[in-house]
């Protein structure tokens, strides 16, 4: 087992496109879940709409900027459509509705009747040529040993981490504003917030829609990187990757999404490498073969999410005290 290579693969993922894209997406979820306390279990739906909004627009001959607008617009409308019926109700209703809606969105996008627009199960490819045409990095491979990126990856990483930076700046500005104060108040107690004359429903709706727009941007970064959108990438489990990222990094902290994304992708890739190697070497016994590596990583992910929520709900770096006064 090449431990060095496995760790470097982990590091590569931790600074690479997946970490950046998921960090962007997590900034959105952090606003919804961390600051407002909304249980949006359909975040992957916003990511899907962002990615497809861009891909479909370009596929139909539109410019990329219009695709970005379309993707964000679609995600905002998705938030509105789900939030309007559920946000006056108990938190669980939002969770149930959103997880169902995001999965149905995926099924609709991969269905036969949507194929003329979405490409069905084959998805849409090569819609980000305009973006790569602007690539300032000269052709080549950058880095050392196996820790390297080509000019295309580097360009997408630049976009991704730039968006992360913008997202963090926006989060900072928002959560320290009176509007951000109302978000946190809603998270703590909706009735008390309403009793002080704040329109709780509107605040939640705004948070859901804004977080969805940011989630759409994350989906776009992933799509641009692959030059491919495929409905089967946008499974419900992706939403829970983002939850794990937000919780690991520390919900309702400004830098949480970044810390979480870097940690998550490092652990996820490294674990994948270890499990793969262990199965290959037969350390797990004769019962497992290489087709089990995928399922095992998701099972370990599930276990990890449980343990994280039970033992360190405040995040890897968070302080216990702040959480102890939490009444939720």
């Amino acid at each position: 087992m090449d431990v060095g290579k496995i760790l470097i693969d982990g590091l590569r993922a931790a600074v690479g496109v997946p970490a950046a894209a998921f960090a962007v997406s997590a900034v959105g979820l952090n606003l919804q879940f961390g600051y407002t306390g909304l249980l949006n279990f359909g975040h992957v739906g916003s990511m899907l709409l962002g990615a497809y909004g861009l891909a479909i627009t370009v596929d139909l001959g539109g410019p990329m900027w219009l695709g970005v607008v379309a993707g964000i617009g679609a995600a905002v409308l998705f938030g509105l459509a789900l939030g309007y019926p559920t946000l006056r109700l108990r938190a669980d209703f939002l969770a149930i509705t959103t997880i169902a809606a995001s999965e149905i969105l995926r099924l609709v996008f991969r269905s036969e009747f949507a194929r003329p627009l979405t490409g069905g199960v084959f998805g849409i490819q090569s819609f980000a040529d305009g973006f790569f045409a602007l690539n300032p990095y000269p052709d080549g491979v950058y880095g050392l040993g196996t820790f390297r990126f080509d000019e295309r990856q580097l360009w997408v990483m630049t976009l991704g981490w730039l968006l992360v930076g913008l997202g963090l700046a926006a989060t900072r500005r928002l959560v320290y504003s009176p509007w951000g104060r109302t978000l946190k108040a809603v998270r703590e107690d909706e009735d008390a917030t309403a009793s002080l004359g704040k329109n709780v429903f509107l605040i939640k709706l705004q948070s859901l829609m804004l977080g969805g727009a940011i989630g759409a941007l994350g989906g776009m970064v992933l799509a641009i990187d692959q030059q491919n959108v495929n409905p089967d990438f946008f499974q419900p489990i992706v939403t829970f990757y983002v939850y794990t990222i937000v919780i690991m990094g520390g919900a309702a902290t400004i830098t949480g999404p970044v810390i979480g994304a870097v940690l998550f992708w490092f652990l996820f890739e490294a674990m994948d490498g270890f499990v793969g190697a262990a199965v290959e070497l037969g350390w797990l016994g004769p019962w497992f073969d290489s087709t089990d590596v995928g399922p095992i990583r998701f099972a370990v992910f599930g276990l990890g999410l449980m343990l994280l929520m039970i033992f360190r709900p405040q995040g890897i770096l968070g302080s216990r005290e702040e959480l102890m006064i939490d009444a939720r």
């Binding site: 928002l174 009176p178 509007w179 946190k184 703590e188 008390a192 917030t193 002080l196 309702a252 006064i325």
Partner: peptide, 25 residues
Amino acid sequence: LARLTVLENVLLGAPDQPGERLSRA
């Protein structure tokens, strides 16, 4: 509102704070 400071709790009561609109924020 447990995880807001005491001052934030009181400030929340203030009516007509334009910064409570998303655009102004």
